[in-house]
Amino acid sequence: MLLGIDLAATLVLLPKPEVGLLMDAIERAVPTFVPAVPPLYERIVDEAQRRGVSIRGIRYGLSGAMPLPAPLVQRWEAATGGLLVEGYGLTETSPVVVGNPMTTDRRPGSIGVPFPNVQVRIADPDDLDREVPLGERGELLVKGPQVFDGYRGMPQETAASFHDGWFLTGDVVTMDEKGFITLVDRIKEVIITGGFNVYPSEVEAVLRLHPGVRDAAVVGVMHPESGSEEVVAAVVLDPGAQLDSTTIHDHARESLTAYKVPRRYVVLDELPVNAMGKVLRREVVREIRGR
């Protein structure tokens, strides 16, 4: 909103991020810039096709809050003729620290490069003083003018959020030789099964490529007998599709190491999400346990 004011642009403000309201606004005047989350971009493209409304002319989209699938980038850019890039940040970083350039040099699937004046380190979560080599997974640590000083009235939580002056994001990432960072997953959401780490986003990306699967959420569910976490997938199917556990299991095994393949699949009508469209994994676990 402040960017729009700074540019003396027209701001279109809506009371809710509902696709109907968005499409009504787009039909009145095609916007130049649409910031949103991946599920909302997908709904806009779907609704535009359903209504027969052109969204061509939207030049820029900046996605955040959750991983942006490369196939969605292709759909959006084909429909708009513009660019859809991914950025990354947290409330504690006011909120952006990393982003893709708004040019054809952007990298679909990557959250981009550090913003100006932002310093980043990718450290071993078990030894934060050790930086991991390029291409290896580690926790993203950041410094910059937009990083907060701490939680008001919560000194212990503040101290736990920093290491030697670096803010701990709690996110696992990798960095390539050109400085582009790829988000792997939240440390707190990593599933530990049989002593191995399983990153839900990696498994979800594979499951979404299976015919008939519209969406997926992968979580760790404690096995009542072994006392360890099992990889379990909640899937949302396309209308008319049916789940074939054997077929989807074989599909997952083609791309994933054996310990990453879900042991169980549960069909849900919709994944539980918050107001921004982000999947609530705790709710997914509750729904799975209730089946």
Rank of each mutant, 00 (worst) to 15 (best):
L2C: 08
L3F: 11
I5D: 15
L7S: 05
L7D: 07
A8K: 12
A9W: 07
L13F: 12
V19N: 12
V19Y: 06
D24C: 07
A25Q: 03
V30R: 09
V30S: 06
V30I: 15
P35Q: 09
V37K: 02
P38S: 05
R43H: 13
R43W: 10
I44C: 03
A48S: 13
A48Y: 05
A48T: 06
Q49N: 14
G52F: 12
I55V: 14
I55F: 04
R59S: 13
L62D: 02
G64F: 10
A70E: 15
V73D: 10
W76E: 05
G82Y: 04
G87P: 03
G89E: 03
G89V: 04
L90R: 03
L90P: 01
S94Q: 09
P95N: 09
N100I: 03
M102I: 14
T104Q: 07
D105L: 15
R107S: 04
G109F: 04
S110D: 01
I111H: 03
G112E: 01
G112R: 02
V113H: 04
P114E: 08
F115A: 10
F115Y: 15
F115W: 09
N117D: 14
V118Q: 03
V118E: 02
R121N: 00
I122R: 01
P125N: 10
P125C: 03
P125L: 02
D126H: 12
D126L: 13
D126M: 10
D126V: 07
L128V: 07
D129P: 08
P133L: 02
L134Y: 08
E136I: 02
E136R: 12
R137T: 12
L141V: 01
P145Y: 01
V147A: 08
V147W: 02
F148G: 05
R152N: 07
G153T: 04
G153H: 03
M154F: 11
P155W: 02
E157L: 15
E157T: 13
T158S: 04
A159Q: 13
A159I: 05
A159P: 07
A160Q: 10
S161I: 08
D164A: 13
W166F: 00
W166P: 04
L168S: 09
D171G: 08
E177M: 06
I181R: 00
I181K: 00
I181F: 00
T182C: 07
L183Q: 00
L183S: 02
D185Y: 09
R186N: 06
V190C: 06
V190F: 03
V190A: 06
F196L: 12
S201G: 11
E202A: 11
E204H: 08
A205F: 04
R208L: 13
G212T: 09
V221T: 02
H223E: 10
S226Q: 11
S226G: 09
S228K: 14
S228E: 14
E230L: 15
V232E: 03
V232S: 00
A233Q: 07
L237F: 01
P239Q: 01
P239D: 02
Q242R: 15
Q242V: 14
D244C: 03
T247H: 11
I248C: 08
I248V: 13
I248Q: 06
D250N: 14
H251V: 04
A252F: 04
S255V: 04
L256E: 03
L256S: 01
T257R: 14
Y259E: 01
K260I: 01
V261C: 09
P262A: 04
R263H: 11
R263C: 06
V266C: 02
L268P: 09
K278P: 05
V284M: 10
E287S: 13
I288H: 02
I288V: 10
